[in-house]
Design a protein around this nucleic acid. Sequence first.
DNA 1: TGACTTACATTGAACTTCTATGTATTCTAA
DNA 2: TTAGAATACATAGAAGTTCAATGTAAGTCA
Lengths: 107, 107
Amino acid sequence: MAASTRPLILSILKRGESYGYQIIQDVKQLSGGTLEWSDGMLYPVLHKLQKDGCIESRWVKSEEGRKRKYYSITNIGLQELQTAKDQWSSIHSVLETIWGPAQKWAI
Amino acid sequence: MAASTRPLILSILKRGESYGYQIIQDVKQLSGGTLEWSDGMLYPVLHKLQKDGCIESRWVKSEEGRKRKYYSITNIGLQELQTAKDQWSSIHSVLETIWGPAQKWAI
DNA sequence: TGACTTACATTGAACTTCTATGTATTCTAA
DNA sequence: TTAGAATACATAGAAGTTCAATGTAAGTCA
């Protein structure tokens, strides 16, 4: 899904810190199954976001003993998210002008 | 504007055939000025769309004597547009779930 | 006649996308 | 106890996208 990965991840992390595997589950659930991200799709983006200072991470051992890398959004990430929202909004307005209200787009 | 260029162009051409310079004006006007495409951004995408069979073009001499390359959408293009709509809709639903209604996103 | 606007084009660097493949660990069922 | 599944993170690199920079061309206007 071009260009929506970072805003989506940042949005999910804005709700609260999360880890990779869970983020994939969330995206699948939130989209009713229409979006299915793979590991290979997600982790490079998480690494880039961290490199860019938009998120940060910490290792946590869960109750079951699993090690998980929890990610949380930073202030830089919140800024990028706002920028992404503005941009998405612009594009969405244009598309809605042309296409009509969103409810009519999909089947 | 990643990943929205093709759907936007196809949408504009679905309304009626148009030429490059006009498409740039339309996008600027439709977005209230927030989107400003350049030649270098647009023409390679138009060429790719044509190469992909999504649009076709014809040269026209306007009344003023200017030569313009008019583009029009094809059936392949209509199909890609529908696919793009479905995809946009999916992502938009997810973002709306997280962000709340679109009206609240930008300033 | 020069500046500006309109109009189309191309190159290539930088960036993005994401499959394929990998390692690791815990859980579950046989 | 072992095999398979689920959970969990990671990386390389091919393929695709983005778009600034730069180019040519032609009509308009002062």
